[in-house]
């Protein structure tokens, strides 16, 4: 594998493509067994059955720009994003796919870096990337590279979180400061000529979720607050269960630099993306135990109770002044503003 850049030949099914698959992808992802190069992954059912009683199955595509950003990159994001979508169902993530759409001319070193990052992230999350696909599009047909991952996990018996189960009185928690990923990406794009020490919070949540369901298998709902931020997840929750949610502004964890960025650009951290934050809703009598379990996990040391489920509808934020304001769904992406 000595080509300096990706060419259309790497997607045409011939020798160059074979070299790419074996030399870059299989070499890194290290799926096991004699059928590795077949057209499909073959998964042992009996092993999966020892972990739980249902499968969770999800897919997500990753087109982030820039592809490398403070704290992470598109490769780790593609693994963690799908791992987290599985984990928040209460599942143990097991297998991932990896489909790459590469732009002709992409430096091979860039691709290697991304694939290595995917492999590291998969190892950290305890999943194996077992099958995939590679396409190359002419220059300009895609922006550098896009990744799609699908994932399969096994759902632990007796754990059935779902947004429809929220009940008035339930307690809402989050595992740390919000908005870091969205803020880091905004700065990394460079258009606003800003500099911060902010890092994306991109991380796999399976371990934290394990700690949560260990103390509270009856957890009502869990969701990772990615695009659209915390506000979007809470609105989805409230709509699904036809309840209201009241947030406490003074309890919301926001890092100083995220707050500074939001003040400067007129943005709201509630709507900024996260890539390692899970919103958890639990019955009131389990809140203390869950908070303690979350805080004793490395990815949850800054966990907070941020609100409660109420009668009614919609998401409200109780300000420090004792007043309430509606936290609506986002109409459109937040744009920096001057007025």
């Amino acid at each position: 594998m000595t080509d300096p850049t990706v060419t259309l030949a790497h997607g045409n099914g011939g020798r160059a493509m074979q070299d790419l698959i074996t030399g870059v992808l299989v070499n890194q992802f290290q799926p096991q067994g004699p059928t590795v190069l077949e057209d499909q992954a073959r998964l042992p059912l009996a092993e999966l059955l020892t972990l739980g009683d249902r499968l969770a199955f999800t897919t997500d595509s990753f087109v982030v720009d820039p592809i490398f950003f403070p704290g992470s990159d598109i490769g780790a994001l593609a693994v963690n994003g799908t791992v987290n979508d599985l984990a928040v169902s209460g599942a143990i993530p097991c297998y991932l796919t990896c489909a790459l759409i590469l732009e002709e001319g992409l430096p091979m070193d860039t691709l290697r870096r991304v694939v290595e990052s995917m492999a590291r992230a998969a190892q950290q999350a305890g999943v194996t990337i077992v099958t995939g696909d590679t396409k190359v599009v002419p220059r300009g047909g895609a922006d550098k590279l896009f990744i799609n991952t699908a994932g399969i996990g096994v759902m632990r018996s007796g754990v059935t979180p779902a947004a429809t189960q929220l009940q008035p009185g339930d307690v809402v928690l989050v595992n740390g400061p919000i908005g870091n990923h969205g803020a880091a990406i905004l700065v990394a794009r460079g258009e606003l000529a800003l500099e911060t020490d902010l890092q994306s919070d991109c991380q796999p949540l399976h371990g934290l979720v394990e700690a949560i369901v260990a103390v509270c298998p009856e957890v009502r709902a869990m969701r990772d607050a990615t695009r659209g931020g915390l506000a979007t997840v809470l609105n989805e929750f409230a709509d699904s269960a036809q309840v209201g949610i009241r947030l406490l502004e003074e309890q919301l964890p926001v890092e100083a630099a995220v707050e500074g960025l939001c003040e400067l650009l007129g943005l709201d951290p509630l709507y900024l993306a996260n890539e390692g934050k899970v919103v958890v809703v639990v019955p009131p009598d389990r809140a203390a135990a869950v908070l303690a379990a979350m805080r004793s996990h490395p990815l949850g040391t800054h966990s907070q109770i941020i609100g409660e489920v109420t009668q009614g509808s919609g998401v409200y934020l109780k300000t420090g002044f004792g007043t309430e304001r509606i936290i609506d769904r986002l109409v459109d992406d937040q744009l920096p503003r001057i007025c």
């Binding site: 700065v187 606003l192 800003l194 500099e195 911060t196 630099a257 500074g260 960025l261 003040e263 400067l264």
Partner: peptide, 8 residues
């Protein structure tokens, strides 16, 4: 410096 964000 604005709350940890730096800008020219």
């Amino acid at each position: 410096d604005v709350g940890g964000v730096r800008r020219g």
